[in-house]
Structures are given as C-alpha cells and as structure tokens.
Design a protein around this nucleic acid. Structure first.
Length: 564
RNA sequence: GAUUCGGUAGCUCAGCUGGUAGAGCAUAACACUUUUAAUGUUAGGGUCCUGGGUUCGAGCCCCAGCCGGAUCACCA
C-alpha cells in the first residue's frame, strides 16, 4: 500500500506516542458530562466539564492554543495553555503531544472549565486531556469564515456518497438531513401508535414477489434449493395479517426493485405501508392528510417546504380531484365513456406516444402523467383510477370502470398511493388472471398469482383501506433535496476499482530479465536492447521505479539503471 | 440505455498553440500566552483516472475503456 506523505506522518506520530508511553487507542471507557450543545445551551462560567470528541482544528500561538472539538452535539472551542496542561517542569504533553502529535481528526477526552474568551466565545479551558483514538487519514479541511461562508467544502458527489462517514463529519448540513429522516420515522410511529396500530415485520425474502408491478431481484436459497425474490412490496403479507385479525398494521419496509438508478430511484428504498380495517379510501385521505401534517409539525416545526422556486404548503386542506376531472381540467378532454380507440386517437393528436399494447387504463394513465401530473404542486389527492391499473383495489362503488384508489401528488410527483382494498376473493382471482394474460403477452411487470394470498382472502378479509408512502421521496421533500442519494446514507454505487496489483506487466518483466543479466547498466543501452518505443520505455521504467524495483542515477553524462 | 460535462497534491480548483506541473487550505520546521478562514518566515508533497495511438515531445490532440454528475429515455 502506498501511503501519502500525510498518512506516513500520522503513522509516525502514532509510533512516537507509544514511545512516550501513551496508548493512542486506549480501552477504558470515557467519562462525558457535557456535549458541546449542552455547554452552549446552559453556559456557566467556571463550571467543570468532561467531554470527548474529535479535534477539527488547531490554532497554536506559542504557549497557548485554541482547538475546536466536535462531538454529537456540535462544535465547541477548547483553550489549551501550556502551563495549565503541564504544571511541572516537563512540558512534553503540551509541546510534543498536543502541538505535534495530535492531528486534525483525532479523538480526545478533556477535563476543564467553562469560560468566555476576550472575543466573547464560549470555550473550555482545558486542564487535562487524553488522546483516545487516532485518525490515520487526514480529513478534508473545510473552513467557515466569519460570514458563515464555507470554503473548500468536500463537494465531490462520488467521494461524498462512497465515504459518507467523511461527508457527515465535514459537511454539517448533511447530518441535519439524516436527523430529519430519523424524525420522520419517529413521528409516523408515534402517530400510528396513538391510534393503536401495530408495527410488524414481514418477509423480505419471498417465494413470489407480490403487491406491485416491478422487476424483482432474484436470489437462491441453498438449503431449500429454490429461487427467492427480494420483496417489491409488502402489501400481500400485511393483508394476510388483517385476515389474521389485527385491526391496523404497518411496516417500514426496505424494498427492492431491479430497475435503473437515477435522481429519484435507488434499487433499495424505503416504503411505509399501513392497513386499517373497516375503513375506505375516503377515510384514508383524511388519515394521510393528518399524518403528513403531524410529520411536518414534528420534523420541521412548520408546514412550508421549499422545492426549487416553489413553496409547498401542507397546512391547508389537501384538494381532492378525480382523475377524470383532472384530465378534463387540464386538457378539456372528457375521458368518461370513451373507448380505447377514441383515447388512443386523442393521444396521437396531442403528442402522446402510444403503442398497440396499451389498454384503456394505460392510455388514461399516460394522459394524466403527461398533461396533468406536473400541475399538482400543492398536496392534492387524485382519485378514482381506471380499473386496469389497479389489480388489488376495490371497484368504485359508483362506476365499474374505476377503482377506489387515490394517489397523493406533491410537487408534481406521486408521494403516496392508497386503496379501498379488494377483499372479494373471486374478483381478486379474476384480476390476477387478467394480469397473467398480460404476462403471457410479454408484460414482464405483470403481477404473479399468489395462491396463498387468495386462500387468505377466501377465509375472509374485512373491509380495509391501505396506504403506501415512499419515505425517501417524503424526506427529499421535507429536506429540499432533489436527489435521492442525498437522503440515503449509503446510496447504491458501482464498486470502486480494486487497488492496482503489484504484479508486473509483460514489458516490465522483460526489463527485469535484462537487468538480471547485466546490472547496473547504462540506460540507453538497455533501452536499445529492449526494443521498446520511447513511450513504452518511459512508462515501464517509471513504473518499475514506482514499485521501488529499480534505481536510476546519473553518473557523469551517463544515466545508470540499477536493481534495488 | 442515449447525450453531455468532469476525473490534476490529503481537500477545493487553475493550467499556455502540445515544450521542465501551479495556487489556496492541509502537512513539516521555526516564531508567537485569548485566537477563530489566527498570523509571519521557510520547506516538502504528483501514477495529471486507465490502456493504446499521433508527435522529436502529450495533463492538453485522437481512439477505446473505467468511475462520477447533470439531462433525457425506461420504470407501479
């Protein structure tokens, strides 16, 4: 492994510390009485504190120094005075350990007193300090000036996503996103808990990937010698629990779909699904609205969210528009009673691409997606979807071509999806069979028939409404992020290149063979013997030097090559 | 998958028509007892993403590839 200059120096510091009898990775637990946030919140001049954290900067001014300590509560300034740290004649702890061997990124524990500096900054006057863990790699140095402007920020997206630990350390705002994400979960859990609904876990490895239309990841179970699928939804399992007698169940479900990656898609993402008995989709609209208002209050302590140049307001009642009305409003076209042919003709006339495989439902969905969806910036429930699009949803009570389904649109995108759940087992079987026909026609996303789910329905499922919400998208919205990678701690990335092998390539091997015969040798001579082009020679000899296999030196006018 | 932009020091980024690789911060050394993007002086640090090619000569031009970003397409 080739170490950079700074890494080598840090390893040397490690050795020097041990030579001084200081273990840089001590085992004992560390007493912490205050976080930096505690000190800032309830500052008390002269009060004793014991703290621990990472050194994020040092400003040395001879016999006194300032350093910045970062802990879970934020950052706090430390003041080190040589004669306070080293009351005796031996000043090693300050002069060597603090000034030289303590690096940016190291963890220390400190004992000291709160005080205010001349410039008025709340600080800790350190009496004792101890190195409790050493950082062998230098962190990116990010500085914030007096105006709060950040300099030399660690911004490279690839580096930030691959090394989120570094990103979190040096980019303070990144941490806030994930704190909010965590609060979203907490808020929803509390809200559901208050209604008496129960959190459950259902299988991630499934014999049949049901509940949605998506391409699954396939894996293999050795002991059972069978294919297993990573779940694409948890819908069917949750409904089986409703059959089993629970009144309300929900799951925060890591879900997997074997599809492309982009700004809004990651192969693994998080959905929350909830099912409540004796309710319909009208109730679920009220519930979803209340839930989101609660989440906004808990997470943002407010109801407004910025998305680009738009402001989304969650405080007002969410509008409810049927899909038919939405299309009529934005296109003037009334889809009610129109045949597949009429719809297709309208699409062609209005610049929407159609193909022969599209049925009535798909055509309507296209029209909505193209012409209407982007208009719904403020939270809006779009209701009553065509039946072909919703094989798990109950038929609309007033119109057999529609279903009792809604999607919640925010910022022109779908945020949540809900049904009055289909609980008629015979209807459900027919719908699955329709899907199977689609699959036969080559639709690789049509749903599988889950016989066990049908059996469960045959035992009887009460009227139930269910809702699913994409947590990642919700967090994006609440934190103003336009990329899903910014709200996932470890977004999917292609693997990094493995470190270059030390093996020699063909050209390098040839040169090594020549050198073994005659050593040392004049460079031009061996270059001639090799028969390499200038460039080949240059690359080869440089590479060998980098591997410390040969040594090149100038003796008088001759350049000599020497095996090391 | 397509288009496009990018990959140079630990970090952020420059780089001339193709002619010895640069800055700031970081690092090292010295000075400095209330600084805060601390300061002053000095020094070291490079696989210019990889592999080919053109050329007397490539960080720069050409070809192929790898990784990433953005946009588009696909995707309940």
């Amino acid at each position: 492994m080739v170490l950079s200059e700074q890494e080598q120096i840090r390893r040397e510091s490690l050795t020097k510390l041990r030579e001084l009898g200081i273990e840089p990775f001590p085992a004992a637990q560390v007493k912490v009485t205050h976080l930096s946030s505690d000190v800032h919140a309830e500052f008390k001049e002269g009060a004793e504190v014991e703290m621990a954290g990472r050194i994020m900067s040092k400003r040395i001014m001879g016999k006194a120094s300032f350093a910045e300590l970062m802990d879970a509560g934020g950052r706090l300034q430390l003041y080190f005075n040589r004669d306070e740290i080293c009351p005796t004649e031996d000043k090693t702890l300050y002069n060597e350990v603090f000034k030289k061997l303590l690096d940016f990124g190291d963890f220390i524990s400190v004992k000291g007193k709160q005080f205010t500096t001349q410039v008025g900054e709340q600080s800790i006057a350190v009496k004792e300090f101890k190195i409790i863990s050493k950082a062998l790699r230098p962190l990116p140095v990010v500085k914030t000036d007096a105006d709060g402007k950040v300099h030399d920020a660690f911004t490279d997206p690839e580096g930030r996503y691959r090394m989120r630990y570094v990103d979190l350390l040096v980019n303070d705002k990144v941490k806030e996103i994930f704190i909010k994400r965590s609060k979203v979960f907490a808020s929803m859990r509390t809200f559901f808990g208050e209604q008496g609904y129960m959190e459950v876990e259902t299988p991630i490895l499934q014999p049949i990937p049901g509940g949605a239309a998506a391409r699954p990841f396939i894996t293999h179970h050795n002991a059972l010698d069978m294919e297993q699928y990573m779940r694409i939804a948890c819908e069917l399992y949750l409904k089986k629990l409703i059959v089993g007698g629970f009144d309300g169940v929900f799951e925060f479900a890591k879900t997997f779909r074997n599809e492309g990656l982009d700004r809004t898609h990651n192969p693994e993402f998080t959905m929350m699904e909830i099912y409540v008995t004796y309710k319909d989709y009208n109730w679920m609209m009220d519930f979803t609205e209340a839930m989101l208002k609660r989440v906004c209050k808990d997470v943002l302590n407010g109801f407004e969210v910025k998305a680009g140049d738009k402001t989304i307001d969650f405080s007002k009642p969410f509008k409810r528009v049927s899909m038919t009305a939405a299309i009529k409003e934005h296109t003037g076209f009334d889809i009610k009673g129109k045949s597949e042919e009429e719809l297709a003709a309208w699409c062609k006339a209005n610049g929407i691409g159609v193909d022969a495989s599209m049925g009535r439902g798909k055509l309507i969905d296209e029209i909505f997606g193209e012409k209407c969806e982007p208009h719904y910036i403020q939270p809006t429930f779009i209701t009553d979807y065509p039946i072909e699009m919703s094989p798990l949803c109950k038929v609309h009570r007033d119109d057999p071509t529609l279903t009792e389904r809604f999607e919640l649109m925010v910022n022109g995108k779908e945020l949540a999806n809900a049904y009055s759940e289909l609980n008629d087992p015979i209807d459900q079987r027919n719908r699955f069979e329709q899907q199977a026909k689609l699959a036969d026609r080559g639709d690789d996303e049509a749903m599988f028939i889950d016989q066990d789910f049908l059996r469960a329905l045959e035992y009887g499922m009460p009227p139930t409404s269910g809702m699913g919400i994409g947590i990642d998208r919700l967090v994006m919205l609440l934190t103003g992020q336009s990329s899903i990678q910014e709200v996932l701690l470890f977004p999917q990335m292609r693997p990094e290149k493995v470190e270059k092998k030390v093996e020699l390539n063909e050209l390098e091997t040839q040169v090594m063979e020549l050198l073994k015969k005659e050593n040392p040798v004049e460079m031009n001579l061996i270059k001639e013997r090799s028969g390499f082009s200038n460039k080949q020679w240059d690359k080869t000899i440089k590479s060998l030097r980098n591997h410390s296999l040969v040594h090149v030196s100038k003796v008088g006018d001759e350049v000599m090559v020497d095996l090391v």
